[in-house]
Design a protein around this nucleic acid. Structure first.
Lengths: 225, 225
DNA sequence: CCTACCGATCGGTAGG
DNA sequence: CCTACCGATCGGTAGG
């Protein structure tokens, strides 16, 4: 497959987005510091200097990837829990929505996870604010379920919230590194059929999300009233 | 062997370890590519060229950090499950042992997670073999528990195994980035009192390990026969 | 969007 | 363990 053909298939006039997408793939695979502007340029068929017509710096590409990812993550969470009648329903919706989003943005999740400390102070403050809002919202949900008797009272809500969030991040980013678990991507008994190619999930995200949400409810010992 | 020579060898030996320890701190914080030999040298009060009296290359430091971490992780797992009478007991022991080890080696866990793909082919093959042995052993434990009726039959063992492993890794490496969750490190209700300083856990690992193991058992719906 | 090029920094070596 | 230094590569700029 020629680079020219792939480039031609993309929308003309979205060079900026094309560069960001190529950067995301490379950052996820090699890390930010391990990726040069020359590699990004080569991936989109340009010479390094031309990238600066679309982006002011390498840092700016990183910052937009991370901030966009965190903004969308928080929006997805708030949308998911809206109008849910019980804590169990809200947690289930938050979990399925989160894993579904994560599986479709595995590169961005991995980059945020690894490189966010390299951001400038302003962007980092914003990212921490977004992450804190997400964390606080999820923790409030856990504690609400505990007060209402739906979730186990003895669970430490701080610990459970961290575990829920981190388990999701890791499950999703794991798909970027299939080699780690050779059987990963196989057809598996309960329907976690997941095939990755160039950072994209091709099949059966819904089943994986349901499995994740079920485990999330088990972790807080959900027992519907 | 003269006393002077032994002393000299000890000095060299401790320098080697001192350099590796400083590198681990920097790699965990800034990434492998983001850390220069000059920074490592400065951290131990040397000039960059002097590092090459103790290590042949920057890559060699990375490789030893990762391989040692994986070897010890597998050993700890095999020791933990030895002689346990039920799958539930074995899973509980594996979980507490794992989190305890991870909390004491958060930097190495984070580095392995992020940088292992940068290893030379030989080291990477070895690391993948060690990880696969750990993964296979844990999955076998889950399936044994399912066959014996201790764990829920409907859980996908592949998915559950990945989730268990990744949740542990993330919980531990999260402590390296306290800023992420401002309340992290506080005194928390159920005893997850964890204070970090320079990558070291100072208090109450046992309670955190127990919380983690309890969640692990819940994830597979453990119900003692 | 290109050619040409900059100063800074990289991992690593020579020699004592 | 140091001083001195290497070629390669880095992110970014000037000018057209």
């Amino acid at each position: 497959m020629s680079t020219a053909k792939v480039t031609a298939q993309r929308k003309i006039g979205s060079r900026r987005a094309e560069i960001q997408d190529a950067a995301a793939t490379l950052f996820a695979r090699q890390g930010y510091s391990g990726t040069g502007m020359e590699q990004i340029a080569a991936a989109v068929g340009l010479v390094p200097a031309s990238l600066y017509n679309h982006w002011p710096s390498k840092q700016a590409i990183l910052a937009e990837i991370i901030v966009t990812y965190e903004v969308e993550t928080l929006e997805a969470f708030n949308r998911a829990i809206r109008d849910k009648l019980t804590a169990g329903d809200a947690l289930y919706a938050a979990a399925t929505t989160r894993l579904s989003y994560l599986l479709r943005h595995g590169r961005q999740a991995a980059i945020t996870d690894r490189e966010k400390l390299l951001l400038d102070a302003e962007s980092l403050t914003r990212v921490h604010g977004l992450q804190n809002a997400h964390f606080t919202g999820l923790r409030a949900l856990v504690e609400q379920g505990q007060r209402q008797g739906e979730f186990d009272q003895d669970t430490d809500s701080l610990f459970a919230t961290v575990a829920l969030l981190e388990m999701g991040t890791r499950l999703a980013t794991s798909f970027l590194h299939q080699a780690e678990y050779p059987s990963w991507g196989e057809v598996s008994g309960a329907g976690t059929v997941l095939q990755m190619s160039d950072g994209e999930v091709l099949a059966n995200m819904d089943e994986a999300s349901a499995q994740y949400a079920t485990m999330a409810l088990r972790m807080v010992s959900h027992h519907p009233a």
